[in-house]
Design a protein around this nucleic acid. Structure first.
Lengths: 146, 146
DNA sequence: CGAAATTCATTCGTATGCAAATGATATCAG
DNA sequence: CTGATATCATTTGCATACGAATGAATTTCG
């Protein structure tokens, strides 16, 4: 008498490898590794900040952080490192003196433009185990839980 | 004349928010936040190590790291903190003197047993925006790219 | 108007996560 | 058997990531 089908956990059993959190973490790890393999001198969060700045132009540090899903402490570190490398420059805001405005430098803009094709390749490679139908489905479902 | 449908990027356009890497990062962030909300005194990697140890029994530190997708440096830190809290204990291996064997303490085992129901709740809550069909699909596709 | 609440940026502490270098131990090849 | 290779654990350095506390500036509200 077979009590449990193959691959189906018994009631009450907890399989780490089947948990969404564990799988999410591994999928994210793989993506970061592929990113590093193609773009060695910039991290995904750094590139995200540059790409977002290119799209929206100058913004405050915190605002940028919200747009790229980083809290205040995290975006500060990212911006500090991008600034040290001459990719962004900072300035005060006339209206609201609390704000630190961030904008791309010419070098930063050139870097984004150069890297976007590589970033597209990274996205494609990350998704390469899937059919294009599956890609659409995955992105849609993932966005739902993000 | 409409050149681009709403939601469809023009050729060559790169939308950060649609990239799998960015969405993966946000989904992972949300899961970690939900985890912390339910299990305040343990991180997901720490719980993963405990859960895996419960399933497979004593192993070497590196072996455990491979099973929970952490490199040697990372698993060491996780084990150090679990050891400091009395959840695991370490020992030398008779056959191979390089190995550090790791096993659950009684307290560690009790902790896992107590936390598994909460972990199941976290998994369910992370996936709550999806139907059960969508859950199966997401897990399957995510596992493919992980 | 002016006190209270909010927002922005910064700092500190803790915890992953990974690359690279190192020393100890095992294994393999000749 | 022994030198070359490989594995295990450790350490250092760097980069997210977030909670909590802080000070400055702004907004809200009574």
């Amino acid at each position: 008498m077979k009590l449990v089908e193959a691959g189906e956990p018994a009631a009450g059993e907890y399989r780490l490898d089947d948990q969404i959190g564990f799988i999410l973490r591994r999928a994210h790890q793989r993506h970061v590794a592929l990113f590093a393999a193609h773009i060695a001198d910039l991290t995904p969060p750094q590139f995200a900040a540059l790409a977002k700045l290119r799209d929206i132009g100058e913004t405050s540090q915190n605002q940028l952080g919200q747009l790229v899903a980083m809290d205040a402490a995290t975006i500060k570190g990212v911006i500090d490192r991008l600034k040290a490398r001459g990719m962004v420059e900072l300035g005060r805001n006339d209206g609201d003196k609390r704000l630190i405005m961030v904008r791309l430098t010419d070098a930063g803009r050139r870097a984004v433009e150069e890297l976007v094709p590589l970033a597209e390749k990274i996205t494609a490679e990350t998704l390469s185990p899937l059919t294009s139908r599956e890609v659409d489905t995955l992105v849609r479902l993932l966005a739902k839980i993000a």
